[in-house]
Design a protein around this nucleic acid. Structure first.
Lengths: 139, 139
DNA sequence: GCAAACCCGACTATTCAAGTCGGGATTTTA
DNA sequence: TAAAATCCCGACTTGAATAGTCGGGTTTGC
């Protein structure tokens, strides 16, 4: 498990896209400028997002990217999976580590539960994700 | 946030220690053999664990390491902190990313909550950590 | 005195992260 | 019809960090 700029930037870019989606396709350069992220790097992330079906692309002048699904149907976990940001903490090289293996599996599930429970739409609204002081935990 | 061998090996080693603690100080080589981990690398991890007060060392022949506190008082989070395995997912370079900042802050808290809630004693008993299928979530 | 075992700072090779490059293809606009 | 805007793509580079090593010192028990 690790959290690198791939995951962060992907979520940031998708959020930017969601916030500007009513204006038609958003080009990579605009997002890069708004978020102060390398456009070339961002482009590679968008490639992955497109391949995973989270965004659609429009080529040519006035081209760019748009969400393929509505923001309420895209979770942070989806985005992370798209850019291959590993959430899996489990690495059971041998059976001797069953006890710790269960620990890491549990952690993995815990993280997934959290990220699967946060959608782009919630991020747009500024809804506090569950587990923060402002967001009261629900069942 | 990332999970590397430092964290994994430290938890594995502490667990091994806890399971063998009634036999007096456990030497690094014994743990290294049982867990198939480089002894030299393990030694560096134990240095950090000792400095953080999680284990005590005994030099000389028949020396080794022992837990400084009982297993029920040492959480996985303590171990991770000792070997400097970063759990913090937050990286708010600028205020423009408040929305995602809260996301990562929430994730960090979520992970901390989980790891702080698992002690070495529970791992020893094979108690499923909370959140896994076998462990029913409690309040 | 030797072996076992901790102690410590410094070092190395490999992997991966973060980003770049160079050019092709498509679409719109003037 | 050419230029500009923008996606498309495989390959590449540099620096940081990981995983582990090294070499020798010190302590303790036998």
């Amino acid at each position: 498990m690790r959290l690198t700029t791939r995951g962060r930037y992907a979520v940031t870019a998708m959020l930017d896209l969601a916030l500007h989606s009513e204006q038609g396709p958003v080009c990579v350069n605009a997002i890069a400028r708004r978020q102060d992220i390398s456009a070339a790097y961002l482009e590679r992330l968008f490639r992955a997002l497109r391949d995973r079906g989270l965004v659609c692309s429009t080529r040519g002048a006035r081209g760019g990217y748009e969400l393929c699904r509505c923001a309420g149907e895209i979770s942070v976990a989806d985005i992370m999976a798209a850019v291959d940001e590993p959430l899996d903490a489990t690495r059971c090289a041998s059976a001797r580590n069953r006890l710790t293996c269960e620990l890491w599996s549990g952690l993995t599930q815990h993280v997934r539960d959290y990220l699967e429970n946060v959608t782009l739409a919630q991020l747009c609204r500024g809804d506090s994700p569950p587990g923060t002081a402002a967001g009261v935990s629900k069942s």
